[in-house]
Design a protein around this nucleic acid. Structure first.
Lengths: 353, 353
DNA sequence: GTGAAAGCGCTAACAC
DNA sequence: GTGTTAGCGCTTTCAC
């Protein structure tokens, strides 16, 4: 592999000049041409490893996700990627599989490779960021908090849970269950709190707790808990699924049993991009995943460029799209223009509700 | 950030000894302990950038995908990841968005960062790998060929197209359309060839060409072409979708029009992990995406470890799963044991058929 | 505008 | 088993 020394020799200049050409510094046109020609001839590709070592920073940012098979996160990844690559950064996506060990390994690599920054959807609220933060590397938490005082972008989870539940209440359902994610994940708790509070308000005679199920945030979890709910002595007449995959699992079970929605009411927090339901059968509270990615990337870039203001948390409002299960299947639109939305100063918990 | 020099000083040893400890070479137990203690105290994380520069290779492998939002590719990514991380390699996933420029950029980064190897699902058959190959870096093509003589893992695409079509023929459909991907993508051509050949054999009086649609490999493509087909003077009574997303789009349109399968027959090449259909409504020819990832990763690791035999192409047989739309929703099982399946020596085109 | 030279943090000979 | 040292390819003062 050719180096700047070989290019320099062939072009009849010094290595420093070659470097300057590739970094857009002032070099005479004549020498620039000679260098470019020599570089092409030798198939020269700058060695980023050496550059990063020297500069003590790279131009890649890491996105660490708990489940790369969840379309919610891949949609978010698209948002991050668009912003990052427009700014000249490359994005590498790492799958922690919701395991703190795997996640820790990827975070270590982010340090080790001196990556420019990290966007993290934490595997749990026990994720340890001490080392990463100690390096001074910018980090943005997405989707879920981390317990650290760092930038974050989250959904209005409680409001989303409320919206989903309200819609079912208004449709006349009276025994509304809730299937949510693991109790140790913030979003799972918040969305079910929304469900609980709406029920307390509108159906005070109904005791919701037996109808709440903590699960994984995966399809199989939705299936399992839906089956449990149907096996109850007094089964629910509707269900709120706290994320897209739980919704898919629940709907699959219902379909298999001939209880196709809306025979049994279903409201889902999160889009269902790959479902094939009748568009009016299910209530979908759309979460702006792509926008979350865009926002997180912008926050991160600001930090990378030296912003030192106190940590900010941005709360994204969800978009109610009742009766439109096919929402989200249009190709991704352009990145919303303009700067990052004004940061909220509040702590996340307060901001959400 | 602490360096091995600082750790060495604190531990009272030489930098070389610190390096040896972190690379598992022979070091006395006493010094090993001292080094580990000092490293912890200083929050030392080895600088991989420096290591890569020195060693001229890193321990990360790149997976370049055309569409990270397609569950087929993320399932594949899981397979790659499991093998790679078990072998001590980290996986970074890059999204080319089917654009050759973006893809070229990520390939350049793979060179630039001296990554250990690349697994590539090419954006098109015009992808240029000259530079990457010139570096001697191992590359494995997945899902699609590249026009280069390199290792590859592909599906039995033609057989898959045939299986899907045969199932519809046997079910009694007689005007079977086909929606496939872009003509410049190998898999799109091969799967539609399977469709064509089965029709020629079983329904020789039917002229299939007006019922063939090239599209994108995305949901919106499936929707658009399904609508076109339904608008024909003599619409099809069944359709073969050449990939999962096309299938989703087609089924969505049918559902919206009250033509829910199997009113109009649908066969899909590829799994539908997030559909909510009745399990018997749609024929699914499952593609072992995860297994493809596993196989590709194993081939790549062999090359990284110095294997120099001629390029191999592995063809993966698809699994017929008629009448089971929910297939693929069980959580990923363990990695199939054993070595890479015996490599075929044939050229890919011959191997497929 | 350009070149010489030091050094980023690590590994791998090479000596002992 | 352990220390010394050169050097991976680049960027960046510092001279000129």
């Amino acid at each position: 592999m050719a180096t700047i020394y070989e290019v320099a020799k062939l072009a009849g200049v010094s290595p420093a000049t070659v470097s300057r050409v590739f970094n857009g510094m002032g070099v005479s046109e004549q020498k620039t041409l000679a260098v470019r020609e020599a570089a092409r001839e030798l198939r020269f590709t700058p060695n980023r490893t050496a550059r990063s070592l020297r500069r003590q920073a790279s131009e890649v940012i890491a996105l660490v996700l708990p489940d790369i098979e969840n379309p919610y996160f891949t949609e978010m990844a698209r948002g991050v990627e668009d912003v990052a690559s427009a700014a000249g950064y490359s994005l590498v996506i790492c799958n922690s599989d919701s395991q703190i060990e795997k996640e820790a390994n990827y975070l270590k690599i982010a340090i080790s490779e001196r990556m420019a920054g990290v966007i993290l959807a934490a595997a749990s609220d026990r994720t340890n960021l001490d080392d990463l933060i100690a390096t001074g590397r910018p980090i943005v938490a997405v989707d879920r908090g981390t317990g650290y005082d760092i930038d974050g972008v989250v959904m209005a989870n409680r409001a989303a849970g409320e919206a989903a539940t309200e819609h079912l209440v208004r449709a006349g359902f009276t025994r509304i269950a809730c299937i949510t994610g693991p109790e140790h994940i913030e979003t799972a708790r918040e969305r079910s709190q929304g469900w609980r509070s709406v029920l307390a308000q509108h159906l005070p005679q109904f005791d919701p707790e037996p109808y709440l199920r903590y699960s994984t945030f995966r399809v199989d979890g939705g299936r399992e808990k839906m089956e449990e709910l149907l096996a109850m002595p007094e089964p629910p007449d509707a269900v709120v699924a706290a994320n897209n995959l739980l919704g898919v699992g629940a709907i699959q079970v219902l379909t298999e049993r001939g209880l196709t929605p809306p025979k049994l009411g279903v409201a889902v927090v999160g889009s269902l991009p790959f479902t094939t339901l009748s568009p009016s059968a299910v209530t979908v509270v759309r979460l702006p995943a792509r926008h979350m990615g865009v926002t997180a990337a912008r926050l991160l870039l600001e930090r990378i460029e030296g912003d030192r203001q106190p940590a900010r948390t941005v709360v994204l409002r969800n978009e109610m799209q009742p009766a439109d299960a096919h929402a989200g299947l249009v190709p991704p639109g352009p990145v919303p223009p303009g700067p990052v939305p004004p940061a909220s100063r509040e702590r996340r918990d307060e901001a959400v509700q």
